[in-house]
Design a binder for these strands. Structure first.
Lengths: 231, 231
DNA sequence: GCAAAAGTGTTAGAATTACACCCATGC
DNA sequence: GCATGGGTGTAATTCTAACACTTTTGC
């Protein structure tokens, strides 16, 4: 089996999500060159000889967000996309990574890079998508994965600063799932699920009203029974 | 961005699972050539110019099982593996696919291809694994995915023939999860969860005792609340 | 009849849901 | 005081878990 046959360009594409102004947003870059010139695209980089896929995704996250220091974040592999015609220039297999980041803000916006509302990008049918290549499908997969994992993992904390209140965490769920959750029942569920939250002992009044306990993300990988987003 | 830079060999690796003699088994092939000569390896094929990743996995499943006609099965993408040193011959990025198949049997065994018990392959520590490359890790990921998806999808049916009884389905859960389930509660849960089972109207006595209803896999993609494997 | 597996009923406990209600701060 | 959000109590309902019991076949 000679290894110089059947090669392809291999890229890492990034679905970097954050929450901005009560909206789930994704980092996109405007394409400067054909194909899909002036369309928005997910941040992407070809793999180098030394880096593994995960490291490549970390590097691209740092570059794409344009922040000197990466904020709290979570990265995991999403899926591989390898349709022979997904890039008109040739065979490109992309490994998509899903990143959830906190601390994004609109002042990282430039004419060619921004946080775009996911709902705006996905509402168009695939044929009229403002996104280049198959990036609409990749984004949809990333959003679906995120919605699902909030049910049974403490991942929502990745959208919050280092320490956060139960309401701030609930707000993440409400934005990502697009639902309203009962604050009292959510509080009880979050604080009583082992490994969901780690108490810090501090409090804050930044949300107004009575001071709220501050937590860190807990160490559970998954929990049972899960939270439910189904009514 | 010239596309002829940074290419890699791209392969599809297959974690094909089945249930044989009350054991979860995976299809493996003995390597005839270095590296890892005489080790077992997951079925694998380099992508061709025309096929997409899913089609490549289907082709490899047909080849690896050696069956003229593929039995009932389910295939989904598992993950991509791209460590630069995972193959000593050069950079190979593998997209692993997970296949669950029914109707496997020991008469497809040859000296170089067989269904091997997953427990035997995973019980050794990684350093002493009988599996080549990073295939132990890929197999472990595939088994973990399978165990998880049995909780909230009707996927267990993919291990059964076209039509099957509730006990046969329960047997799949017991083997894959390595637990004992109460037949009466399982029966109630399976038959009352919408989309889990589709009645056929037929019965069978092949398991002995009172005739049992035969079902097909239902059309639900996921269900809530899930089955639980936690005690 | 007897063994074996299918399937139903029942009950205690756990989890979810929908609220009423009190608490601690800023103004 | 009063508005605001934080947090606890509680009762109705639903889900789970354990197991007694009945049904329908083969032998």
């Amino acid at each position: 089996m000679p290894l110089d046959t059947a090669t392809a360009a291999v890229a890492v594409d990034l679905v970097a999500l954050t929450i901005l102004d009560d909206e789930l947003c994704v980092r996109v870059a405007k394409r400067q060159t054909p194909p899909f010139r002036d369309h928005w695209a997910l941040p992407s980089r070809l793999i180098s000889e030394e880096e593994d896929l995960f490291a490549t995704a970390e590097l691209e996250l740092a570059r794409a967000t344009g922040l000197a220091e990466l904020p709290v974040h979570h990265i995991e592999q999403l899926a591989a996309y390898g349709d022979p015609r997904r890039d008109p220039r040739g065979r490109v297999v992309s490994i998509a990574y899903l990143a959830l980041v906190a601390g994004a803000s609109t002042w990282t916006h430039t004419p060619s890079r921004r946080w775009a509302a996911v709902s705006d990008l996905l509402e168009q049918p695939a044929a009229a998508s403002p996104l280049a290549f198959d990036h609409r499908e990749i984004l949809a997969d990333g959003v679906a994965r995120t919605r699902a994992k909030l049910e049974y993992t403490p991942l929502a904390g990745a959208f919050c600063p280092e320490t956060f209140t139960v309401s701030e965490l609930r707000h993440v769920y409400e934005v990502v799932w697009g639902v309203h959750l009962d604050p009292r029942n959510f509080h009880r569920k979050a604080t009583s699920t082992p490994g969901f939250l780690a108490p810090t002992g501090s409090k804050t009044t930044r949300d107004g009203g009575r001071p709220a306990e501050l937590y860190r993300t807990g160490d559970a990988l998954t929990f049972h029974p899960p939270l439910t987003r189904h009514i």
